[in-house]
């Protein structure tokens, strides 16, 4: 199986590469349209700032390529946010795959620290009455989050986490999957999710 990881200017791309290698998969890290289109699976990972990332993607034509992919695609963290319509981070229009807008967390009380950093549990959220295959065997488990922006619960939400209020921990629309948390840093549970993605 050919797994491609989108190469762009976001941080921490290598951690997803390492996670796949631990599972015995040798991914290719690429920004080539041809390589991305011909891969069986594409992972769009990252950590960083939305407006800088989206400008980079546009300059390199990666925005159109990602939108046009037809194989299973997995966005992680900033990847999930960039797959939405618009982000409050840098007030920027994003890829528009998910019909949702990215918001900044606003604390309701002093205890609401931002970023939302650490392990929190995910609950499956079956909007369309169909359980997400990405989260097969995973419900109520803890996964690792690091983020200051979030996607509100919407029609594409497949898992919800509660921090300040419920938000989208995982999403899906057609062949596009996404997680706000980092499966590559979420121990055995995260590995299960990556494994599910490869087996979709």
């Amino acid at each position: 199986m050919k797994v491609a990881v989108v190469k762009y200017n976001a941080g921490n791309i290598f951690s997803v590469v390492h996670a796949l290698e631990r599972m015995g998969v040798e991914p290719i890290l690429t920004d080539s349209a041809e390589e991305l289109r011909s891969a069986d699976r594409v992972i769009f990972p990252g950590q960083g700032e939305a407006s800088g990332a989206i400008h980079y993607l546009r300059e390199h034509g990666l925005d159109r390529i990602i939108r046009s992919l037809t194989q299973p695609v997995l966005g992680i963290c900033i990847g999930q946010q960039l797959m939405c319509r618009h982000s409050e981070e840098g007030d920027v229009d994003c890829l528009g795959i998910f019909d949702a807008d990215v918001k900044r967390f606003r604390p309701l009380c002093h205890e609401d620290k931002i970023p939302h950093m650490g392990w929190n549990s995910i609950q499956n959220h079956n909007v369309q009455n169909s359980k997400s295959a990405l989260l097969e065997g995973v419900d109520g488990e803890s996964v690792y989050f690091v983020h200051s922006f979030y996607v509100p619960v919407c029609e594409h939400t497949t898992a919800v986490t509660e921090y300040i209020h419920p938000f989208s921990a995982a999403m899906q629309k057609d062949n596009f999957y996404a997680t706000q948390f980092h499966p590559e840093k979420s121990g055995a549970v995260g590995q299960q999710i990556l494994c599910n993605f490869l087996e979709l």
């Binding site: 390492h18 690091v146 980092h182 121990g187 995260g190």
Partner: peptide, 8 residues
């Protein structure tokens, strides 16, 4: 560590 450990 980065290659072998799956937590932050």
């Amino acid at each position: 560590v980065a290659a072998e450990i799956d937590i932050p």
